[in-house]
């Protein structure tokens, strides 16, 4: 198998980055490229460093974006950069270099939901399906030509972290399918068709603006809770609400059968359309709402 790429650089974090890294390492013998991994964002439970150690893949941690930009721009060989679960925005001066090709995994079906935290926004908007897109990176964020897409359903109880995991699995599946075509530069890409309503979701945006309005329909409240649920990873700050005139912070929530209801302090129960109850545990914050 032949490729003109002499070097492959993987940047990312989490499960998808790890699986893709292992796959590219396994295929190294087929093509003979050099492989390295760059960790740009730190993750408490990351295993990529371990994978690199076990597989003898050069590993470097470059948390500073300027340093990373300088490092990548100094690459002279023909190089494929694989961006897998990576929030670093590649500068135009790098994207436009002739010896560099960059492919990125976006966790939505582009051109819909470009930008950050797409799994949250699709849940919040009540979408029934979403998916992943591998695309070439261009100067515009998430605007490059599409290499491959995979889709999946969004269940009625799906939380953001569960969907993120499902999308990472799809990202791996899609990557394994298109990797040879990318390396041989024979991908039949298709351009994205942008609608005038297309909007970019920014990292500073939070579904519901981070506020849970108890006057809303319980099913919408449930969507909001699920959309910002990434466990303890701190993707979003805890939702806030107002209970009995006092500001409160949401601690956790759960859908339960009505017979499981137990009266407890700082707990709300809201009826869902499917007959279950939405149990919400909160804690009061010091200030009263005026």
């Amino acid at each position: 198998m032949e490729t003109d790429f002499e070097r492959v650089v993987v940047i990312g974090y989490g499960k998808a980055a790890g699986e893709i890294l292992k796959y590219i390492a396994d295929r190294q013998a087929d093509y003979g490229y050099l492989l390295e991994f760059i960790e740009h964002e730190l993750h408490a439970l990351s295993v990529t460093a371990q994978i690199c150690e076990e597989s003898g893949i050069p590993f470097s941690s470059v948390p500073d974006r300027r340093e990373l930009g300088v490092y990548l721009k100094e690459i002279q060989e023909k190089t494929l950069i694989v961006s897998a679960s990576n929030n670093y925005l590649f500068p135009a001066s790098l994207v436009e270099k002739e010896n560099i090709a960059i492919i990125n995994f976006h966790n939505a079906l582009l051109p819909d939901y470009p930008g950050r935290n797409a799994p949250s926004w699709v849940i919040y908007q009540g979408e029934k399906r979403t998916g992943i897109t591998w695309h070439y990176v261009t100067v515009g964020v998430d605007e490059g030509n599409i290499i491959i897409q995979k889709s999946c359903e969004i269940g009625p109880d799906t939380k953001a972290y569960e969907l993120a995991e499902q999308l990472m699995d799809l990202a791996c599946e899609g990557f394994f399918e298109c990797f040879d075509a990318v390396l041989s530069e024979k991908v039949e890409t298709r351009p994205q068709a942008f609608s005038p309503e297309r909007r970019m979701y920014r990292s500073t945006e939070i579904p519901g603006e981070g506020f849970l309005n108890l006057e809303e329909e319980p099913d919408k409240i449930y969507r909001l809770l699920r959309s910002v649920d990434y466990g303890k990873t701190g993707v979003f700050p805890p939702l806030q609400t107002v209970v009995d005139g006092k500001r409160a912070k949401i601690l956790r929530y759960r859908k339960i059968a009505p017979e499981k209801k137990k009266e407890e302090a700082d707990m709300l129960y809201l009826p869902l359309a499917d007959g279950n109850l939405l149990k919400i545990k909160y804690t009061n914050m010091s200030d009263e709402v005026g």
């Binding site: 499960k15 439970l45 972290y161 993120a164 990434y230 303890k232 990873t233």
Partner: peptide
Amino acid sequence: VIDSFTVI
């Protein structure tokens, strides 16, 4: 044995 999603 365990991944970050299971931990969540």
